[in-house]
Design a protein around this nucleic acid. Structure first.
Length: 269
DNA sequence: ATGTCACCTGGTAGGTGA
């Protein structure tokens, strides 16, 4: 089972690259079973269901105009149950979370796709909103784990959890994505019984999932690892691999984020 | 080098968010 997350920074612009990438995974014998998208920036009425269907995909979407917007994409015919939009009980005008339950030979997997708030800068109103949102998300994921032992939380966290996830930890110290407050919330999420799938494996040093469009950052490999896949302890034995796919970032008109992929085996090892 | 990209408004540029 291959699960992935990708912040596409406008699905209207990135749809051709999305379809190319999905096709390439299948060609590479790593067909995607579920992909969560962030920053679709589309109201649901404008979501490109027809184009995706023509390529063999179905989508659940939860969007808004201009900003944010998330989606859950699965192969046509795959069952998706218990679809949910945003954090229950947390009043939010911003479309940031979509969840669904996927059947699997090893037991159903609860998939939560999330676009965490950026937070702009410590001390700002947007940072305060990020803190409130993180508190609500953490409480809700704790609840979800009570009813869904096999759970995957993935998306654009807008948090670089450790200094090794930052190209220049000195320059970024205390800056947005790297503050102690944000990292503490990442730690609380992990403490619920989740594990960062990427760090279960030896990875190339200087592995990032986001590079600023400015400053030739991708060419210089100056980025952050802020897109993550956390799996519950029950799924941990099934994690076979996890990697960041930099290839789409080399395209013309790329998203500023790269997809992250996790492979779950059917049986415990 | 505060050096880009995407979106909006209200236009043929400027503001916002990331």
């Amino acid at each position: 089972m291959n699960l992935a997350t990708w912040n596409v920074n406008s699905l209207a612009v990135r749809l051709p690259q999305l379809l190319d990438w999905l096709a390439a995974q299948a060609t590479a014998d790593q067909p995607i079973d579920a992909l969560v998208l962030q920053e679709t920036k589309l109201v649901d009425e404008k979501f490109p269901h027809a184009e995706l269907q023509a390529a063999g995909w179905q989508a659940r979407c939860f969007g808004q105009r201009t900003y944010n917007g998330v989606a859950l994409i699965t192969p046509i015919g795959a069952a998706t149950e218990g679809v949910l939009h945003n954090i229950p009980g947390f009043d939010d005008e911003q479309a940031r979370v979509i969840a669904g339950t996927l059947p699997s030979a090893g037991g159903a997997v609860r998939v939560v796709g999330a676009y965490f708030p950026n937070g702009q800068a410590p001390g700002s109103d947007k940072f305060a909103y990020k803190m409130r949102w993180l508190e609500a998300l953490t409480a809700w994921i704790g609840d979800e784990l009570q009813t869904h032992e096999r759970l995957v939380l993935m998306g654009d966290f807008n948090i670089a959890p450790e200094d090794r996830d930052v190209h220049d930890p000195v320059a970024w110290a205390g800056q947005i994505h790297c503050t102690p407050e944000e990292r503490a919330w990442f730690g609380r999420l992990v403490s619920l019984g989740l594990v960062d799938a990427f760090r279960l494996f030896e990875q190339p040093p200087k592995s990032w999932s986001w590079w600023d469009y400015r400053n030739l950052a991708f060419r210089k490999n100056q980025g952050l690892r802020i897109d993550h896949i956390l799996v519950s302890e029950a799924l941990r034995p099934r994690v076979v691999s996890c990697h960041i796919d930099k290839l789409p970032r080399k395209n013309e008109r790329p998203s500023d984020h790269a997809p992250v992929v996790v492979t779950l085996g059917e049986t415990a090892t």
